[in-house]
């Protein structure tokens, strides 16, 4: 233990003069040079501007519906707390609230930023030139991921802060500390969720040589999960539903099975996580019997409990992102390097 500590201390001490030397001649590490270039590419591209405009439009639209329905939303619930979060969740039914918008458009952002990550380098002939540089091969894919995720984080942060800022201006109510943290966690989960789709798109961009093919396959996966998946689950439910309910535990068990089926979809995980975070009155995600609800005091959950409730969903999203990244990593490392093939 002590040896390990000494070693770490040594590393830290050794790190300092290196950093000084770096500042002197200012040669950045190749990894960060690549990240910077990728980010600059994204930020300068029309693609990013279009996505940002789309998201800004969404923000304005959802803010508008939220504000116009804020009055009724407050009247409905006696608990006057968490008024600020209503900006993100309130709706009149015509336009979805902000959190639904993010779950809908998030995948598009991820796919748009990742679908041509590797195959465009290949078709432009820059990949072989890049790989002939004295850098480890995995830098290429790692920097692409880091840079795109950073761009996503910037975009989400802009939108989140914009929502808060405009919200304060329009309602005149500042968010409480707890509300701020809830929004913070919501934005964090959104970044991870978009990261999942980003990784999927990067994986397809490695697998398929044509950007169009990889974009289409990513979109196909997205459509499958957002449209067809619930239908398929419904079919399974109809086929396997117990015909005669003998006791409550059977019913609850079955309900749990259906819910877990639905949770295969990342968007289900995301919406469970975000609604729980943004609507503190949600106390559980599973079925509740009347006995269980009977003694419960109606009231919002504290932040810690909300986070605890959706901890599995958040962990799963991170895990899915890492699994897909792992697959892309292996695919990329094993691929032949031929110019433009």
């Amino acid at each position: 233990m002590r040896a390990a500590l000494n070693k770490i201390g040594g590393l830290l001490r050794r790190g300092t003069p290196q950093r000084k030397a770096k500042q002197a001649d200012q040669a950045p590490h190749p990894f960060w040079a690549m990240v910077r270039k990728e980010m600059a590419d994204h930020l300068n591209s029309w693609r990013f501007i279009i996505l940002l405009l789309l998201m800004l439009l969404t923000t304005v639209a959802s803010l508008y519906t939220a504000i116009s329905n804020l009055g009724s939303a407050i009247a409905e619930e006696s608990a006057s707390s968490f008024l600020f979060l209503k900006l993100f969740t309130a709706t009149d039914g015509a336009l979805p609230p902000f959190i639904t918008f993010v779950s809908l458009l998030g995948p598009i952002i991820g796919i748009a930023l990742g679908f041509d990550a590797v195959n465009s380098e290949r078709s432009r002939g820059t990949l072989s030139r890049l790989l002939a540089q004295p850098i480890p091969r995995d830098y290429v894919i790692n920097t692409k991921f880091v840079a795109s995720l950073a761009v996503v984080a910037i975009m989400i942060a802009i939108l989140g802060l914009l929502m808060i800022g405009i919200g304060i201006l329009l309602t005149g109510i500042p968010p409480t500390v707890e509300e701020f943290w809830r929004i913070f966690f919501f934005l964090l989960v959104s970044i991870v969720y978009i990261g999942v789709w980003l990784n999927l798109a990067i994986m397809f961009s490695i697998r398929f040589k044509q950007p169009a093919t990889s974009a289409l396959s990513s979109l196909a996966v997205w459509l499958f999960f957002s449209l067809f998946f619930t239908m398929i689950v419904n079919l399974i439910v109809q086929a396997t539903a117990p015909t005669r309910v003998t006791d409550v535990s059977q019913l609850i068990g079955y309900q749990g099975f259906v819910q877990n089926l639905l949770r295969i979809s990342p968007s289900q995980l995301f919406s469970e996580a975000t609604t729980t975070l943004m609507v503190p009155t949600i106390r559980t995600l599973g079925p509740v019997t009347i006995e269980q609800a009977y003694g419960a005091i109606a009231g919002p959950l504290p932040l810690g409990q909300s986070v605890l409730l959706v901890w599995p969903q958040m962990t799963c999203l991170v895990a899915v992102a890492f699994i897909i990244f792992g697959i892309s990593y292996v695919l990329f490392m094993k691929q032949e390097v031929r110019s433009r093939l």
């Binding site: 270039k37 590419d41 300068n44 432009r124 002939g125 820059t126 990949l127 072989s128 030139r129 002939a132 110019s339 433009r340």
Partner: peptide
């Protein structure tokens, strides 16, 4: 070693 591949590509933008 410097390597100039057949049909070298650059970042066009």
């Amino acid at each position: 070693v410097g390597y100039l591949p057949d049909e070298v590509g650059f970042y066009e933008n």
